[in-house]
Design a protein around this nucleic acid. Structure first.
Length: 931
RNA sequence: GCUCGAGUGGUGAAAUGGUAGACACGAAGGACUUAAAAUCCUUUGGGCAGAAAUGCCUGUGCGGGUUCAAGUCCCGCCUCGAGUACCA
C-alpha cells in the first residue's frame, strides 16, 4: 500500500503555478512585444485606458479588457500584426482631492494606484506590449498634449476649405483684406478693413486673433463647482451636480481657455456615417452635436432702428408668430425695454441670473416671463407683436431670441395661454384648443403666399422669400458648445503659456514640456487663485507669470491612441512611419459613459491633427464596442427588530424585521456562511439564527450598483486565487453578450472551472501522464473539432464570446465521451481555446512537446468536408407544430421526402384517411403538413 | 416629453422566419467512497392523463396582424434600463 501514491505522477490542474509560470515565460521571451512588420497586415485593438482609482479593480472592470484580449490573440493567430497596448489616464480629480485632504503629493498616490492596477491586470494574463505603456501624467507624455494645445493656439478654422489653417495665413489675409472675406469658425467679431487692422496696436491685434484661434481664451459662462473649486465641462455635469462627487454646480462668467470644437461640428456629424459603431452610440453623438436646419430672420422693432435676430427651424410658421421672446441675458434687453417696464424687467432679469441651472430645471413647469413694453413688426403680416423676456429661451443657443408661434410650438403655446397672447393656427391638421400642433405635416393656412402649400414646400419657399427680401438667411445651428479647457486645479497638464500684460504668449515647441512645479498645499490660495498660485517660481524666465489653471481630464486621453503607435519617440507625437503603418484603431472597447465626452474630444483632436498633416486618418476609431456594465448582486439578512436574531428569507414576514446588506463573499448560492458572518463584524459575533426548513439560512438578493457600501464588491484577485485567471476570463465571457449589462454572481463560476478541469484531463491517461497519440482521428472526432473551429471563428468575429464558451464545453464533453487522445484533434482544440484561456493552453502546448509559444501558431481553419452530413433529421409539423422527426438521406428530392413522410404511420394516424391541404418541404429544414 | 435598447425556466442565457430553452448554475435522485471532496449518470418550463413506455394541451411582457410556419417581421399598448431635456 505504501507505494501506491508514490507510483503515480499526479498531474493535477494546478492553475496558480501554471499561470505564474506562463506569465513569466511570456515576459522573459517578450511574446507580446510588437514592432512594425510590413510582411503582415496590421490590426490595432485598444481598450479605453483606466483612471487608476484607489479602490483597485473590481470584477466588472476587466470585462472589456478580456474581450479585447481574446480578439487580439485571435487576430494574431490568424496572421495579423496586432498592436494591443495599455496605459493609464493618470491625471484627475480623486488623487487631487486626496492630496487636498492629506497633503500627500498626487504623483505618489497615483504611482501607488498604478502599481496596484498593474498587479491586478498582470494576473489576468493580458497580451499588452509592456514596452508601450504610457501615463498621461508623465512629462514625456504630456509634452505632446501641450504640443497639440500650442498647435491649436496657432491655428484657425477656415469654413470654406473646412480645414484648420495657420494663424500666420490669417494675418496675411487681414493685412490684405481685413476680415471681410474671411469665413472662419470664430467668436463674433465686427468686420474691419485692412487699414483698420494695420493701424491696430499689438495687443488689439492679439485680442482679435484670439477670436479665431482654435484654442482660445475668452470670457464665458461656465459650470462652476464651488466644492471642487473648479469649472467643469458640460458633460461633466449631470442634473446640476458634478458627475464626480455629486457637488452642486452654478453658472458663472469667467475667463477660460476653450477649444473651438464647434468648428468641427459638421465633420463630427458626417464622420459618424463611416464608422462601425452601435446605432445607439451614434445617436447619442448626433443628439449631443444637435444639428438643426432653419433660418435666421430679422424682426424690426417698432419706432426703433434696432432689429432682433432670431433662429427658427420653422420659418414656414412665421405668419403665426404672435410674439417674441428674448433670453434674460440678452444684450438687447436694456435697449428695448420701455421706461414704464424697466423696474419689472430688471427684477425678472436679476432673479433669472441668480438662479442656478438646477433651480431652473426644477422649476421648469412654472411659466415665467415679463413684457418689455416694446413691439416688433412681423415682416410678413406687418402686425405689431409684443416682445417678452423669459427664461425658457436660452442665451447660449441660436441667437438667444425667438419668434414665438404658439399654435405650433408647445412651449410657446403654454406661454401664450398663461399670458393670454393671441394664437393663430397656420398649419392645418391639429386641434389647438388644448395643445399646440407641433408636427411637420399639413397644409398651410392663414399664411398669405404660403397658403395651400405643404409644410415641407412652405419651408423652402419662405426661406427663398426671406433671402430675396433681405430679411435673413438660411442657417444651420448646432447644439454642441466649445469645450472649456481650463481647470482651477493642480493635478493636470500645465498650459504652455505665459502672460505679458494681459496677452497670452505661447512657449516655443523646444521649450516643452513645461513641467508641474512643486507646491506645499493643494488647496486654492487665500485669494481664490488655483493651487498653482502657490508656486512662487511659476514664472517664465523668472519674469512673466505662467497660466495658473491646468488642462482637464479629457486632454490627456484625446490622443493617447496615437502615442501608443510610437510611445518612446521624443521627437514627434508619432512618427510618419509608425502612423502610416498602424493608421487608426481597428477595434476600440470601452463603456458608454464616454459616449459624448471623450469620444467627441478625441475625434475632434484627431481631425485637427489630420488637418495639419501629422496623421493619415480623419477618424480615430473604426469599430467601437461598448461592453455592458457589471452590476452588483447584493445579499441581505433579516434581523428581527430589537434583537440579534436573524431570520431566513422565507420566514421573515412572520416578524418585524430590518433588511441588512451582508458581504456577498460569505454567501454561497444565497446560503449564508454562519461562522463567517459572526466573524464578519463584531456586533454580529453573538448573532442567533432562525433557519429555513432545510436547516440553512437563506439570504435575499437584489441587483444594485457594485459598491463598497452595499458589500457586493467582488475582487478579481480573490476569484483568481480560488479558480485561476483562465476560469475568470472564461466566466466573464460566459455571463452573456458583451454589450449587455448584467449582475455579477460568482455562483455560476463552478461550471467553467469544471470545464477547464475536464479539458485538462483530456490530455492525460489513467496514469496521470500526458498522453497524445499520432493516430489518425476518426470521422466523429474530426466532425467535433471542425464544428468547434467553425463556430468559434464565426463567434469571435461577431463578438459572441458567450456562445464560444458554450461551444468549448460541448466539444470537451463530446471528446471525453469518445476518450479522444489524438494529437491532431487536441492540439487544434488547444489553439482554438488559447485566446480565451491563454495559460492552461500554453502549459498543455508545452507539455505536448513544444518549445515555442502557442501564440506563434496559426488558428486552425475548419475543413468543410468533415461537416457534411449524409442524413438529415427533418422535423415534421402539422399546421406549424412539430410532432415528430424523420431521418432521411441528404440527397433525396422534395417529392421523395414528401412520400416518406406521408407513408409514415404517425402521419397516417393524424390524417385519419383525409388528404392534407398542402405539404411544404423546406429542403434541409423541415416539413409542414397543413390539414 | 423626445431618442435608443431590452422583456424567454428558479438563475445567467441560446435560437440565418423553420424541433423554443443549446451551454451552464441551482435543485432532486443515483453510482463510486467507511465517509467526504472530486468525478460520473439520470431528471429538471408549466399543466393533464398513464403502472410505465409514452401521449395530449399549453408556453418567449400584453393585444392584434402578415405567413404553410413568428421569440424572430408589421401595427398598437405595458413595464424596465440608458441617453437627453425648455435647443426654438
Amino acid at each position: 500500500m505504501q507505494t501506491f501514491y508514490n507510483d503515480i505522477q499526479i498531474m493535477e490542474y494546478t492553475f496558480s503555478e501554471i499561470e505564474k509560470k506562463q506569465q513569466q515565460f511570456w515576459q522573459e521571451n517578450k511574446i507580446y512585444q510588437v514592432d512594425i512588420d510590413h510582411s503582415k497586415p496590421k490590426f490595432y485593438v485598444l481598450d479605453m485606458f483606466p483612471y487608476p482609482s484607489g479602490a483597485g479593480l473590481h470584477v466588472g472592470h476587466p470585462l472589456g479588457y478580456i474581450a479585447s484580449d481574446i480578439y487580439s490573440r485571435f487576430k494574431r493567430l490568424t496572421g495579423f500584426n496586432v498592436l494591443h497596448p495599455m496605459g493609464f489616464d493618470a491625471f484627475g480629480l480623486p488623487a487631487e482631492q486626496y492630496a487636498v485632504q492629506t497633503g500627500q503629493h498626487p504623483a505618489i498616490t497615483t504611482d501607488i494606484n498604478i502599481k496596484r492596477y498593474k498587479e491586478q491586470l498582470g494576473k489576468l494574463g493580458f497580451s499588452y506590449d509592456p514596452e508601450r505603456e504610457i501615463r498621461t501624467s508623465d512629462p514625456d507624455y504630456y509634452k505632446w498634449t501641450q504640443w497639440a494645445f500650442l498647435k491649436m493656439f496657432l491655428h484657425w478654422y477656415d469654413n470654406l476649405s473646412q480645414k484648420a489653417r495657420p494663424i500666420s495665413e490669417l494675418i496675411v489675409e487681414f493685412e490684405k483684406n481685413g476680415n471681410t472675406k474671411v469665413n472662419a469658425a470664430c467668436t463674433e467679431t465686427p468686420l474691419f478693413e485692412a487699414a483698420v487692422w494695420n493701424g491696430m496696436e499689438d495687443n488689439e491685434k492679439e485680442a482679435v486673433l484670439m477670436n479665431y484661434r482654435i484654442a482660445y481664451r475668452a470670457e464665458t459662462k461656465v459650470n462652476w463647482c464651488p466644492a471642487l473649486g473648479t469649472v467643469l465641462a458640460n458633460d461633466e455635469v449631470k442634473d446640476g451636480v458634478s458627475e464626480r462627487g455629486g457637488h452642486p454646480v452654478i453658472q458663472k462668467d469667467m475667463m477660460q481657455w476653450q477649444l473651438r470644437v464647434t468648428a468641427y461640428a459638421k465633420r463630427l456629424l458626417t464622420g459618424l456615417n463611416e464608422l462601425d459603431w452601435s446605432d445607439s452610440l451614434k445617436e447619442m453623438q448626433k443628439n449631443w452635436i444637435g444639428h438643426s436646419e432653419g433660418a435666421e430672420v430679422f424682426f424690426q422693432i417698432k419706432n426703433s432702428e434696432t432689429k432682433i435676430q432670431v433662429f427658427t427651424t420653422r420659418p414656414d410658421t412665421i405668419f403665426g408668430a404672435t410674439f417674441m421672446v428674448l433670453a434674460p441675458e440678452s444684450e438687447l434687453t436694456d435697449k428695448i425695454t420701455e421706461i414704464e417696464q424697466t423696474e419689472e424687467v430688471d427684477k425678472y432679469v436679476t432673479r433669472a441670473k441668480n438662479r442656478t441651472e438646477r433651480e431652473r430645471i426644477a422649476d421648469a413647469e412654472n411659466i415665467t416671463g415679463v413684457f418689455t413694453g416694446s413691439y416688433a413688426i412681423n415682416p410678413f403680416t406687418q402686425k405689431e407683436i409684443p416682445i417678452w423676456i423669459a427664461d425658457y429661451v436660452l442665451s447660449g443657443y441660436g441667437t438667444g431670441a425667438i419668434m414665438a408661434v404658439p399654435a405650433h410650438d408647445s412651449r410657446d403655446y403654454a406661454f401664450a395661454k398663461h399670458f393670454n397672447i393671441e394664437i393663430i393656427p397656420v398649419v392645418e391638421g391639429g386641434d389647438i384648443s388644448e395643445t399646440s400642433y407641433d408636427a411637420k405635416k399639413g397644409k398651410m393656412i392663414n399664411s398669405g403666399i404660403l397658403n395651400g402649400l405643404d409644410v415641407h414646400d412652405a419651408v423652402l419657399k419662405i426661406i427663398d422669400e426671406i433671402e430675396t427680401q433681405n430679411l435673413g438667411h438660411r442657417k444651420v445651428n448646432y447644439r454642441l458648445r466649445d469645450a472649456i479647457f481650463s481647470r482651477q486645479r493642480y493635478w493636470g497638464e500645465p498650459f504652455p503659456v505665459y502672460y505679458k500684460e494681459d496677452t497670452a504668449i505661447p512657449l516655443k515647441e523646444e521649450e516643452l514640456p513645461l513641467t508641474l512645479p512643486e507646491i506645499n498645499d493643494y488647496k486654492p490660495t487665500e485669494t481664490g487663485e488655483p493651487p498653482l498660485g502657490r508656486a512662487s517660481d511659476w514664472l517664465y524666465k523668472n519674469q512673466y507669470p505662467f497660466e495658473l489653471s491646468t488642462m482637464p481630464g479629457f486632454a490627456g486621453s484625446s490622443a493617447y491612441y496615437l502615442r501608443f503607435m510610437d510611445s518612446k519617440n521624443n521627437q514627434e507625437l508619432v512618427s510618419k512611419t509608425a502612423n502610416n503603418y498602424w493608421q487608426d484603431v481597428d477595434l476600440y472597447i470601452g463603456g458608454t459613459e464616454h459616449a459624448v465626452g471623450h469620444l467627441i474630444y478625441a475625434r475632434f483632436w484627431n481631425k485637427f491633427l489630420y488637418d495639419l498633416g501629422y496623421i493619415v486618418k480623419d477618424e480615430p476609431f473604426k469599430k467601437l464596442v461598448n461592453q455592458g456594465m457589471i452590476q452588483g448582486r447584493s445579499n441581505f439578512v433579516y434581523r428581527i427588530k430589537d434583537s440579534s436574531t436573524f431570520v431566513t428569507y422565507n420566514k421573515r414576514n412572520q416578524f418585524e424585521f430590518s433588511e441588512i446588506h451582508t458581504d456577498v463573499n460569505i454567501v454561497h448560492n444565497d446560503i449564508l456562511d454562519i461562522e463567517a458572518f459572526k466573524q464578519w463584524r463584531p456586533e454580529f459575533s453573538d448573532a442567533e439564527f432562525i433557519f429555513d426548513d432545510d436547516g440553512k439560512y437563506h439570504c435575499g438578493y437584489a441587483v444594485e450598483k457594485m459598491s463598497k457600501s452595499k458589500y457586493n464588491v467582488v475582487n478579481p484577485d480573490d476569484i483568481i486565487a480560488r479558480y485561476g485567471a483562465d476560469t475568470l476570463r472564461l466566466y466573464e465571457m460566459f455571463l452573456g453578450p458583451i454589450e449587455q449589462s448584467k449582475p455579477w454572481d460568482t455562483n455560476g463560476i463552478e461550471g467553467v472551472y469544471r470545464f477547464l478541469n475536464k479539458f485538462w484531463r483530456l490530455f492525460f491517461n489513467e496514469n496521470e501522464t500526458i498522453n497524445l497519440t499520432d493516430e489518425k482521428p476518426s470521422k466523429d472526432e474530426q466532425k467535433i473539432i471542425n464544428t468547434l473551429i467553425k463556430k468559434v471563428s464565426d463567434d469571435i468575429e461577431k463578438f459572441s464570446f458567450n456562445t464560444s464558451v458554450a461551444a468549448f464545453m460541448v466539444c470537451a464533453n463530446d471528446l471525453s465521451k469518445l476518450k479522444c487522445n489524438k494529437r491532431e484533434i487536441l492540439e487544434k482544440f488547444l489553439i482554438t481555446l488559447s485566446p480565451f484561456a491563454p495559460h492552461i493552453t500554453e502549459e498543455l502546448w508545452q507539455l505536448g512537446g513544444h518549445n515555442d509559444s502557442i501564440f506563434n501558431e496559426a488558428f486552425p481553419e475548419h475543413n468543410e468536408s468533415f461537416l457534411i452530413e449524409t442524413t438529415i433529421t427533418y422535423p415534421v409539423a402539422f399546421n406549424g407544430k412539430t410532432k415528430f422527426t424523420v431521418e432521411v438521406s441528404v440527397d433525396l428530392k422534395n417529392s421523395e421526402i414528401e412520400k416518406i413522410v406521408l407513408s409514415d404511420e404517425r402521419t397516417k394516424s393524424r390524417l385519419n384517411g383525409e388528404n392534407p391541404k398542402k405539404i411544404i418541404v423546406v429542403p434541409g429544414r423541415m416539413v409542414n403538413i397543413v390539414i
